[in-house]
Amino acid sequence: PDEFRDPLMDTLMTDPVRLPSGTIMDRSIILRHLLNSPTDPFNRQTLTESMLEPVPELKEQIQAWMREKQN
């Protein structure tokens, strides 16, 4: 489902985090971005790792969907 895909890389998220802007991304992708630029890739506001907020409900939904697909 589209809501499980990272908006920057269009890959399935495994550890979704919410940026201060409200955008949800995969943690590994935003951390890689932050190594090059300490900004939100969508609005260029300053962004640090400590500002990332886990989204455990979405992570659980993704994991359940993945388990379902394996069966």
Rank of each mutant, 00 (worst) to 15 (best):
P1N: 14
P1F: 09
P1S: 05
D2C: 11
E3F: 04
E3T: 08
F4K: 05
F4C: 03
F4D: 05
F4A: 04
F4N: 02
R5F: 11
R5E: 09
D6V: 01
D6M: 00
D6F: 04
P7V: 02
L8W: 06
L8H: 04
D10Q: 09
D10S: 08
D10N: 10
D10F: 05
D10H: 06
T11W: 03
L12Y: 05
M13R: 01
M13F: 05
T14A: 07
T14C: 10
T14F: 11
D15A: 03
P16W: 00
P16G: 02
P16L: 05
P16R: 00
P16H: 00
P16Q: 07
V17Q: 03
R18L: 05
R18A: 09
L19T: 03
L19A: 01
P20S: 00
P20M: 00
P20R: 04
P20F: 00
S21R: 01
S21V: 01
S21C: 10
S21Y: 01
S21K: 07
G22N: 08
G22Y: 00
G22L: 02
T23C: 12
T23L: 12
I24D: 02
M25A: 08
R27T: 08
R27D: 06
R27M: 00
R27L: 02
S28R: 13
S28G: 14
S28N: 13
I29N: 10
I30D: 00
L31G: 06
L31D: 06
L31H: 10
R32T: 15
R32H: 12
R32P: 00
R32M: 14
H33W: 13
H33G: 01
L34I: 10
L34Y: 02
L34A: 01
L35R: 15
L35S: 14
L35D: 15
L35W: 08
N36E: 13
N36Y: 13
N36K: 13
P38Y: 06
P38D: 15
T39S: 10
D40H: 04
D40R: 03
D40A: 01
P41W: 00
F42S: 06
F42K: 10
F42L: 11
N43M: 05
N43K: 05
N43Y: 03
R44Y: 07
Q45R: 10
Q45Y: 04
Q45C: 08
T46K: 13
T46M: 14
T46P: 14
T46R: 14
T46F: 15
L47Q: 02
L47A: 04
L47K: 05
T48D: 11
T48V: 06
T48P: 01
T48N: 15
E49L: 11
E49R: 10
E49I: 13
S50E: 15
S50H: 13
M51F: 05
L52M: 05
L52T: 01
L52V: 07
L52C: 06
L52I: 04
E53V: 14
P54W: 03
P54G: 09
P54A: 05
P54C: 03
P54V: 01
V55S: 05
V55I: 09
P56E: 11
P56C: 13
P56A: 08
E57Q: 13
E57W: 13
L58W: 08
L58S: 06
Q61R: 14
Q61M: 08
Q61K: 14
I62Q: 08
Q63T: 11
Q63P: 04
A64R: 13
W65C: 06
W65T: 00
W65E: 07
W65L: 04
M66H: 15
M66F: 12
R67Y: 12
R67V: 13
R67A: 15
R67K: 14
E68M: 13
E68Y: 06
E68V: 12
K69T: 15
K69W: 05
Q70H: 12
Q70G: 14
Q70R: 12
Q70K: 15
N71K: 12
N71F: 14
N71A: 13
N71M: 14
N71V: 15
